[in-house]
Nucleic acid binder design. Structure first.
Lengths: 252, 252
DNA sequence: CGGCAGGTTGAGCGGATTCAAATACAGTGG
DNA sequence: CCACTGTATTTGAATCCGCTCAACCTGCCG
């Protein structure tokens, strides 16, 4: 009954049982599977279904005329791939699977009516979009004003916080099937330099990485190295006394 | 009766007279003036009013702990400063006036009900947010994968298209009160390098700049230099046969 | 065993930065 | 009207972070 979409949005607000059931029903319909490396939604496409990532890792990307590629965002379970689909004529970027993924299809009309609801659900959806904006802005700061070391540390730390939201980072370990080429495309650097930077983070004892699993060994040190401030993720419930136990917010 | 907010959203869809009147009423209430250099909305602030830029130029920015600053977006007349205000507890970045600005205050409750309307208005607002996302993604590509020359050309060309939307770029000239320091903060480079890059664009006869007014001398050449593709702005009405006359879409 | 994708290492180059100083320019007050 | 002041732009020279190119290694799989 607990799905990553609900878990993520619960970081924003507490839902009633009925609301949770509602959300759960929405992602319990048609599923789609996509193999690593394939497009979940190609650039320029249109469809009348939204995709919610349930398992695996995906990314938003855009290929440039000169062959370069920029990854604008990583999408983990609970993330919505294409909130724009029911308004815009076509996607202005592609969404690709990095590892094998399963996505839930939600019809545009369901999503539309959800958005217009006066309940917490409509607000939660809006919250999701607003935090997406925040994450994008943070990525601009990354590539614009942070050096390679801080930049990669920041990306990894953000992934940790986000994976924790959906309870997929036990022991501060999480799946990280991202190749160094992908990482370079996301951080706006070359694979070679991404490699050297990762090595330094490992040598400093901040992270460990093997078999596609990233482990953050020293959260405090990594957070400091990344100059991380998580306000932009708007995990509002962190400050909610009713929220108990160890949550993603502990890291922010 | 024609205000920049309506003009901008008309790039997405045609409104009925009643809808236009509705939009106009919303920005005809309280006005706020802000002097150049001052914060319109400080980082971390909260209010229960949204700000719509009516005149002047503003920017979204974030100051980093080490004193650096990153400008994430420029806001021209018709742009909404803080769509998040009625959901999120606080702003995760600041909005500052670059030149003197006037903004219209729209109450959060008015905005909220607008968003829930089944008319074109709710969709238009959603469209605005989605294009903001698109512009941010494009900025990530800018700083991540384009060199200084292309990057600045791209920024200027985008400003031209956006100014045209709100009919503020007669003869391909528009107000550009952005200092080279601002420009550097927006493009993720140093003022010195921004200066040299601008000089090259002028030497190549692509742009002219004096007295705070930018003139694009050769739109085709600038577009080519910027490798510009305007799909991300989603000026859907460009393809609408009912749309007549020279509009921003001509450039996209 | 060969092939291939991903990761690692080295050396040289170059775009952008840094620091510093000079120049232009607008506003202000004597 | 000019001297004065502060801000913005311009120029030069040295330095460095990250890029390029190229080779090599490693593990995996057919």
């Amino acid at each position: 009954m607990r799905n990553p979409w609900t878990l993520k949005m619960e970081q924003f607000t507490a839902f009633s049982d009925m609301e949770k059931r509602r959300l759960n029903d929405l992602v319990s319909g048609t599923r789609e599977h996509c193999a690593a490396g394939q497009d979940i939604i190609p650039d320029g496409a249109h469809s009348d279904h939204c995709h919610v990532v349930l398992t695996g890792l995906a990314c938003r990307y855009k290929s440039l005329p000169d062959g370069k590629r920029q990854i604008m965002a990583f999408l983990i379970p609970g993330d919505l791939c294409d909130a724009e689909i029911f308004i815009l004529k076509m996607m202005d970027h592609g969404v690709a699977a990095i590892s094998d993924t399963t996505t839930a299809l939600v019809s545009a009309s369901d999503m539309k009516s959800l958005l217009r609801e006066t309940s917490s659900l409509g607000e939660a959806l809006w919250w999701g979009t607003m935090t997406d904006l925040g994450v994008l802005r943070e990525r601009i700061i990354d590539v614009g004003r942070r050096n390679a070391h801080v930049r990669i540390a920041h990306l990894i730390y953000e992934m940790l916080v986000r994976y924790r939201m959906v309870e997929l980072a036990p022991g501060d370990s999480f799946k990280f099937p991202i190749t160094q080429v992908d990482l370079a495309d996301a951080t706006g650097m070359t694979p070679v330099h991404a490699n050297r930077t990762l090595q330094k983070l490992r040598a400093d004892g901040l992270i460990a990485f093997s078999q596609g699993v990233m482990t953050v060994l020293d959260t405090a040190a990594l957070k400091a190295a990344a100059r991380f401030n998580g306000d932009y993720l708007h995990l509002d419930r962190v400050h909610d006394p009713a929220s108990v136990g160890r949550r993603a917010g502990d890291l922010v």
